[in-house]
Amino acid sequence: MFSKGAEPADTPTVGVGPRVAEKAVAGPIVRLSGVNKHFGSLHVLKEIDLDIAEGEVVVIIGPSGSGKSTLCRAINRLETIDSGSIELGGSPVPVEGNRLAAHRADVGMVFQSFNLFAHKTVLENVTLGPIHVRKCSPAKARAQAMELLERVGVGAQATKLPAQLSGGQQQRVAIARSLAMNPRVLLFDEPTSALDPEMVNEVLDVMSALAQDGMTMVVVTHEMGFAKRAGDRVVFMADGAIVEQASPTEFFDNPQTDRARDFLSKILVH
């Protein structure tokens, strides 16, 4: 497994498959191979190969329009793909119907815009999935939900409606909602990009704690601090392709491609 900073400092893989994950003891929990996607004439995902090991925290960074979000959403099939395959725990992501729903129940998703159910209280947001998908008893679901809400620090808000909460609180509820499903992987699609600056850290702290607890996470973000602190691996994407991937220290200290150096010079200048 990948303890933080344990990567050997050899040459990072550039544009070719996921060398880092190949060293994992167990098979990858998520495997993307040869994934392509087009939006009309735009080739948004180009031959993506990516393996994610159990317990690994993969941070996907790159300029806007590089396909990071699309890649993240494709793992949950919120975006369809044109070719290639995406597997979870060795079996391909179902195309539709109840089997796809079951797949999604196992893959948590945290959105940029929180997307809490606007007509339900915070507590109901968290219990909805366990009750209707996991067939949990309401009492058990509520107890578990309260535990999770306490864990992300919003237990006191349980009876409020989402709109009564700050952005940071809403996003933490959204994380609790995902956790309530006991997901095998948790996807974060720019979870702090819609937040006021002073609320970014409260969300990142929760995410760091999850990473510490061994949750498998795929995080699309512009928070380089989080990538360095909590990431096991940084995947750098540009123009729909994985350009470079390495451990955070390696990537930030010694980027191998011009594209990555250019990107880092633009964001780390201030």
Binding site: N76, L78, N98, A101, A102, H103, R104, A105, D106, V107, G108, M109, F111, S113, N115, L116, F117, A118, L128, G129, H132, V133, A174, R177, S178, M181
Partner: peptide, 15 residues
């Protein structure tokens, strides 16, 4: 209803 509501619903495994 914002599209994100449906995406969130599908993401927790609701049919």
């Amino acid at each position: 209803v914002p599209a994100g509501q449906a995406e969130a619903a599908r993401s927790i495994g609701l049919s």
